[in-house]
Write a protein that binds this DNA or RNA. Structure first.
Lengths: 231, 231
DNA sequence: ATATGTGAAAGAGTTCACAGCC
DNA sequence: GGCTGTGAACTCTTTCACATAT
């Protein structure tokens, strides 16, 4: 029988840790702006909204960047996390779909700063093409592949209607893109090796509604209890 | 001594399952629109982008709603999941901060449909107050508490600049709101019993950058690590 | 004295594989 | 035969608690 060896991923940083590194980075930048030179895991954890044991474990995956009895050097840790996340280089991002959401994204400060550069805004609607947004001119999505190749776009943000998302996805993958941030409420089908992250506004609301309901009623009936207990 | 209770797991639907229920609901609605009456866990899982074992385990937490040898009745399962998520009632949502993002959210179809109703748009900027967006008039955020009380708002979406977010948060909590969806890039401090979910656009990009960097510079050993969808 | 880094334990979440029912 | 529902195994994540370093 073929057994899959757990295979310690050589420089493998756990996904859960990677997802929190941007949080730490933001907290550290806040501290740096206020002139803080050194921070303890306790204080940094507080600023990032996690507990200190988790923070220390997370950072330990990057290396031993702290000093026992002292804490972490803020600037040094900012550099190390930035490097690990790949933010010391500039990533060209294209936003496809310039509706309300696409405009919001193009103007979103967090996109422009910190290693990301909006290198293209594309839309299929001729009424939108030519608009000037965040210092860029909206181009027709016919030129999607050309924009990706010429401007070295490596991350594409899909902010189109759901119906167009898969088609856009297929095209950008064919053009060589392997990292996609999808805002369209649809499950994208992609080949192995392509990374898709999804942001789904309505899903977040629905999760909140679930918890809100529990608070109000103490749970959606006990109707399910007899249904489930029979087995 | 303080005992840490692992979150209101009361009738025991795991968080990970709750987070996927909206996904299943969307897939089921798609099937229903195409007139499908019955679906197997295999097919539904495919449509939702998960594997079938996970889907069955998730659904088993709600009850025994399938039929062995047959599958799940689409309409019945839609109803059960909707009920579990609390979408059979109408939730009044207020959006605070009507910049680019707030406008996008107000116009976002997924917000208006499926049990959610935008009951108020508020902003502190007099230049924005009075604007008509998605059938609503933007009101001054001075009236935040009044809007929440009079219109029965139970979920607040914060789409303000980072600097205003905590203040808005404090005010809505004081007004009785216990469910908050935060788009501002800041960690909100809230008392126990208040539920905050965060959507952070730049964090998603940074996670993508991490994986993109690994593809470019990393060795061949990680090929399997990227496969599939994250989140 | 103080705070990191980390094995070990505990807890969540996922996948397997098959019993049970249609 | 076909498909669900689920205990068991496995993997991933979090937390604990303390040895270790300054």
């Amino acid at each position: 029988m073929i057994r899959r060896i757990p295979q310690a991923r050589e420089r493998g940083i756990p996904d859960a840790t990677v997802a929190r590194l941007p949080l730490y980075l933001r907290a550290l930048n806040g501290l740096a702006e206020r002139g803080t030179a050194t921070v303890s895991s306790e204080d940094l954890a507080l600023a990032a909204g996690v507990n200190s044991a988790k923070l220390r474990k997370d950072l330990s995956h990057l290396g031993s960047y702290g000093t026992r009895g002292v804490g972490y050097d803020v600037q040094y840790l900012i550099y190390q996390i930035s490097r690990e996340l790949g933010l010391t280089q500039d990533w060209a991002v294209a936003i496809v779909g310039v509706g309300n959401l696409g405009r919001a994204l193009a103007n979103y400060g967090g996109f422009v700063s910190r290693g990301f550069r909006v290198a293209g805004l594309l839309d299929a609607d001729p009424a939108v093409v030519g608009d000037h947004i965040a210092g860029l001119t909206v181009e027709h999505s016919d030129g999607l592949e050309a924009v990706i190749r010429k401007r070295g776009v490596s991350i594409v943000v899909i902010a189109t209607p759901a119906t167009a998302a898969q088609q856009v996805c297929d095209r950008v993958i064919a053009a060589g893109v392997t990292s996609i941030l999808n805002f369209a409420p649809v499950v994208l089908t992609v080949p192995d090796g392509v990374d898709v992250r999804k942001v789904d506004l309505s899903i977040e609301l629905q999760i909140l509604a679930f918890h809100e309901q529990r608070k109000v009623t103490g749970g959606p009936m006990m109707a399910e209890d007899w249904a489930g207990e029979a087995g």
